[in-house]
Design a protein around this nucleic acid. Structure first.
Lengths: 229, 229
DNA sequence: ACCGTACCGATGCGAGCGCATCACAACGTG
DNA sequence: CACGTTGTGATGCGCTCGCATCGGTACGGT
């Protein structure tokens, strides 16, 4: 055996095994032994990479999160010539993990979300991911609905990053005619995407039906006067 | 001891204990011993009520599901004089479990949704609940947007029940100007509510922010020409 | 009054868990 | 070429889990 192996790549291999197991048997079915067997390494190797099980799960979560946001970013810069509106549609569909080949990721993600409710470290990682996504979506929405509405999206809008305001002030007036700022629209899209993911996973909706819902919602967005948003 | 006790009420007590534990420690933290201790009964009593642990969880899930749908129904028939639009807003907020006192139910619900991904019996129960909700919401949407849009909701529209078509046909034309039928609108509301619930639970949104998102989305619904929907 | 019966609570069991430990093997170095 | 260092994989330990079992107990019928 080599005197020193690439720890980082091994961590990724283990993380993949965690995801595979979480996909088929849920997060409860993820044990150190099974992970080691699935990753085709010894249990000791897994324990060398991660001091504790929770640390392993946390790494797997950030691994999946990075992969998803990376894919969204790739999807956006791949077609910079497209309008911001279609770019937003693609990004949302990507986040919703509706495509068949990403079903596994969706299951893993939902499992982690549920676990994060009772595990603060996981919740922190999840919040960071969502903050990034919300920032990117907010910029995209502003671009799609703001100036003209149809011109191509700039690549810069796709770059994710922290947005600053942790807690938005929320409109003081409880009135109904709220202006619906881009941030709120982005939050709506994100929550809708996650809800659809869950509904598809438990079999309440087919991927096609979820796609329809998403498509209809986006279409309704553009029909409203863009300047008002 | 009485020769025969009320099994049904005991099952409910045990179900409450399951929910309490799932709320604070997640579904993985629910063990037969702890459930028995929390319900202040012996472990043998729990095993008498439910043959297996999964049967116990399934009962707890339907218990919670019934309570939520019951609350939605109550909320609707309580104010029959209100417009269908505000009724729909109240119902959606209720399903989203945004109120502080229902946070526990939200946590339990999310835990069950995640578990249902790998447990077909749980998934079945969940699908049944969602089918009911979708039916009720579809009727409510049709009433709110259909004939006039503002007249009071009838009590009949609030009664939940199976709707029939298991798989909607989905529009054949892949075009953008879809008419957005009430069913699709209802599915959007349901998915949005669930997504918001999850985002609040993991701390990405505050309840207030989620309420704003919901409120804005509903307001946008009514601004569009009602006849077109 | 008594006995049958249905129920209860405690205990036992096998399995599986996360984590700690340890002898060994494979390199880089003198 | 020998040696120390370092990573490795198997094994052990303490614990808790779900589930099965069993003697004790308090009714209800006759």
């Amino acid at each position: 055996m080599p005197r020193q192996v690439d720890h980082e790549s091994r961590r990724r291999i283990v993380a993949e095994a965690v995801c595979a197991l979480a996909d088929e048997r849920g997060l409860e079915g993820v044990t150190l032994r099974d992970v080691a067997a699935r990753a085709e390494v010894s249990m000791g190797a897994v324990q060398r990479c991660f001091r504790t099980k929770e640390e392993m799960l946390l790494f797997a979560l950030t691994h999946v999160g990075d992969r998803i946001t990376e894919r969204v970013r790739t999807r956006l810069v791949a077609g910079p010539a497209q309008s911001a509106r279609t770019a937003l549609g693609h990004a949302t569909a990507e986040v919703a993990l509706l495509r068949e080949e990403h079903r596994a990721e969706a299951r893993v993600w939902l499992a982690f979300v549920a676990q994060a409710v009772v595990s603060e470290p996981l919740a922190r990682a999840l919040r960071a991911d969502y903050a990034d996504l919300e920032g990117a979506f907010t910029r995209l929405v502003a671009e799609a609905c703001g100036p003209g509405g149809e011109e191509p999206a700039t690549g810069a809008a796709a770059a994710a990053g922290p947005t600053g305001d942790g807690a938005s002030p929320a409109d003081p007036a409880g009135d109904g005619a709220s202006p619906a700022d881009p941030r709120t629209t982005a939050r709506t899209l994100l929550a809708l995407a996650d809800g659809l993911t869950a509904h598809v996973l438990i079999g309440h909706l087919t991927p096609r039906q979820a796609q329809d819902v998403l498509h209809t919602h986006l279409a309704a967005l553009w029909e409203r006067p863009p300047a008002a948003r």
